[in-house]
Structures are given as structure tokens and as C-alpha cells.
Design a binder for these strands. Structure first.
Length: 362
RNA sequence: UCACUAGACUGCG
């Protein structure tokens, strides 16, 4: 049964819920862990309804079952449902359950409710403090976030990353860099991980802080950190935003795995550096290699057309995104195309584009 | 063997 549960977990990690469900169905012995694993798998894949129907079918549930379900609702912003499950929970609520509720409320902008739970909960772990720090940060209260950060003990890499990205999200890039510096200089055994570095690289890009960005690049090499596709994307983005798009290109082709974000970083990077044709060629290459574009990919493509004044190409790609890729245009896509048309002097067409939008113009 | 907290690529302004 351990084996079944481990394989079940593996399937969910890879997002293969079909296989997980099939294994679940054909296995003669299942225990509560099997149920919990499948529920969490559905929650993480966004199929909260399926998770709930399993939850309702269960005979015996434990605190992990309840918490998995509650965190699913909290992540999707359904705090009413999350709260009612939280209230109905018959067994001991542990810090994990409380933490899910805190970040759920913060995500909906209900900062005071988040804080209320933080104050009321009987036991707080490090994740509770971290959750509260990012609750403040996500709601524009960086100073309060910082005072909690300073007050807490046993900071872990999450705490540092929370606070650093908190600064970044509130346009306090310099503070983010300063705190990062403190993090690497302090000999407390806590080292930045991939997520920390991605946040900091993003800051470097926005501030055009090339020297700091290069330092992080070297840091990755010096510490033999694996250059994952996401971290690669962050580097590509940083170099491009700092005007070194040739370095971006080099890094891109050296990566052995490229995911959609990697492609996006390069396409967007070329676009903002005025290399419209290179950006479009990169997009073609992406299609040739059968990589699946997303809405950010198309934003990059449209940006390239906009910078290059390529009206025909822009309109062609804009139409193709919904027709051939089933990606619905968002406000940012419309904004880009309207900009493209207007700059080309096609004001009538631009107005027509605004009228055709499925949402209210901003 | 299962649940919580940080996350880069996101137009113009």
C-alpha cells in the first residue's frame, strides 16, 4: 500500500490525474493516505469539484484531508467555503490549517481577517509568520511586513524570499537588493534558493542593475546551482532588460531544457530591445519545435510587432492566438495591438479594435 | 507514503 501511495503521489506531481485515478480505481487496498493524496492531486490541478466529491465520499477523514480541501478553496479565493469547512472541522486544527486560511484571506485583500487568525491561532510555526509577512506585502503594507520579519526568530529561506519579493512587489527594488545582500552576507546557514534568485534577478532587470545581475549569475555558477529552465528565464530576462540581449541569446541556446517561460523571456527580451524580426524568428522556431505558447508568448510577439511597426504581422498573430491556440486575448494584448495600430496612423482601425473587445476598455 | 508559507517571463501610461 506504501507503494501504491507513492506511485499515486508521483502521478499527481506530474499532473497525470488520469493515471492517478485509474490506479486508485484498480487498487484493492486503499487507506486514508491514498484518498488524501488523490484529493490533493485534484486540488493542485485546479479540479476542486472532483476533489470535493472524493472528500464527500470519504468515510473517515483526518486533519490532512480537511486541510488539503481547505487550502484548495483558500487558493481559489473561495473563502466562504473554506471558512465553513474550517468551522465544521471536527478534529484538531493544526498550524497548517490556520496558515492556509491566513493566506487565503490575504489573497482576497481581507488583511484584517488574516491578522485576526494569526493572532488567534494557538500555535504558530515559521510558515505562519511567513504567511503573515506576505499577507502584508501583498496588500501594500511593506513596513508592517518588515517589522514582523525583524521580530520573528528562526527565519528560513521562505522568510527571506517573502520579504525580498515583498519589497519587489511594492516598487522597493533597492530595498530588495539590500536585503538580499544582507542575506548572503549573514552567516546564518540560510542560502538563497532558486526562487529567491528569480525574484532578485527580476529586480535587477527592472532597475537595470547589470552589475548585481552579473553577480548573481556568477553566484549560481560558483555554488554549482542547477540552471533550471525557470532560473534560465530569469537570467535571460535580466540581461535583456539591462540591454545585453546578446547574452540572453547565448544563455538561451546553452540551456538544455526550455519551457514556455524561457521562450517568453527571450522573445520579450528581443522585442523590447527593438529586435522585432529576431523575436518573430524565435517565435517561429518555437512553433517548429512544437513548444506550446501561452498568453505571455503572444504578448511578446505583439510587443515585437509594435516596436517594429509590423502591422500585418501583428494582426495575423493576434488573430491566430485565439483561432489556432485557443488563447483568449486579454486587456494587455488589446492594449498592444491598439498601440500598434495607432502608431501606424490607423486610428479608425484602432477604434474598431477597442469596440470589438470582449471586456470594458481601461 | 499525504496537507500550510516565498516565485521569474506580464504591453503603453
Amino acid at each position: 500500500i506504501f507503494v501504491v501511495n507513492t506511485v499515486l503521489k508521483m502521478y499527481t506531481v506530474f499532473g497525470d490525474l488520469k493515471s492517478a485515478q485509474r490506479l486508485f480505481d484498480i487498487s484493492p487496498n486503499l487507506d486514508i493516505v491514498s484518498w488524501n493524496t488523490l484529493i490533493d492531486g485534484y486540488v493542485k490541478s485546479g479540479a476542486i469539484k472532483l476533489a470535493r466529491s472524493l472528500f464527500d465520499k470519504m468515510g473517515e477523514r483526518n486533519e490532512i484531508t480537511w486541510t488539503a480541501m481547505i487550502s484548495g478553496y483558500a487558493k481559489t479565493g473561495s473563502m466562504d467555503v473554506a471558512q465553513s469547512l474550517f468551522d465544521r472541522m471536527p478534529i484538531c486544527r493544526n498550524p497548517v490549517t490556520w496558515n492556509s486560511m491566513i493566506s487565503g484571506y490575504a489573497k482576497c485583500g481581507l488583511l484584517s481577517l488574516a491578522r485576526k487568525l494569526f493572532d488567534e491561532m494557538p500555535f504558530r510555526n515559521t510558515a505562519s509568520w511567513n504567511a503573515m509577512i506576505s499577507s502584508y506585502a501583498h496588500n501594500g503594507e511593506v513596513e508592517l511586513a518588515r517589522s514582523l520579519f525583524d521580530k520573528m526568530q528562526d527565519k528560513d529561506v521562505f522568510s527571506w524570499s517573502c520579504m525580498i519579493s515583498g519589497y519587489a512587489q511594492n516598487n522597493r527594488g533597492r530595498n530588495a537588493l539590500g536585503l538580499f545582500k544582507e542575506m548572503v552576507q549573514t552567516r546564518n546557514g540560510i542560502r538563497p534558493n532558486e526562487v529567491t534568485l528569480m525574484s532578485v534577478l527580476s529586480v535587477c532587470g527592472h532597475l537595470a542593475a547589470l552589475d548585481q545581475g552579473k553577480w548573481i549569475h556568477a553566484y549560481i555558477g560558483r555554488n554549482k546551482m542547477r540552471l533550471s529552465d525557470n532560473l534560465g528565464a530569469a537570467l535571460i530576462d535580466m540581461y535583456a532588460k539591462c540591454g545585453c540581449v546578446h547574452t540572453s541569446v547565448e544563455i538561451f541556446w546553452k540551456l538544455d531544457h526550455k519551457n514556455v517561460s524561457t521562450w517568453n523571456a527571450l522573445i520579450t527580451g528581443l522585442a523590447v530591445n527593438g529586435l522585432a524580426h529576431e523575436a518573430l524568428k524565435t517565435f517561429e522556431e518555437m512553433q517548429r519545435l512544437k513548444a506550446k505558447p501561452n498568453s505571455i508568448t503572444f504578448l511578446g510577439v505583439l510587443m515585437a510587432c509594435c516596436h517594429g511597426g509590423l502591422v500585418e504581422d501583428g494582426l495575423r498573430h493576434f488573430r491566430s492566438m485565439s483561432k489556432n491556440y485557443d488563447i483568449q486575448p486579454e486587456m494587455k494584448h488589446y492594449g498592444c495591438v491598439v498601440d500598434l495600430l495607432a502608431r501606424a496612423g490607423l486610428l479608425e482601425e484602432a477604434q474598431e479594435m477597442v469596440r470589438s473587445m470582449s471586456m470594458k476598455p481601461d
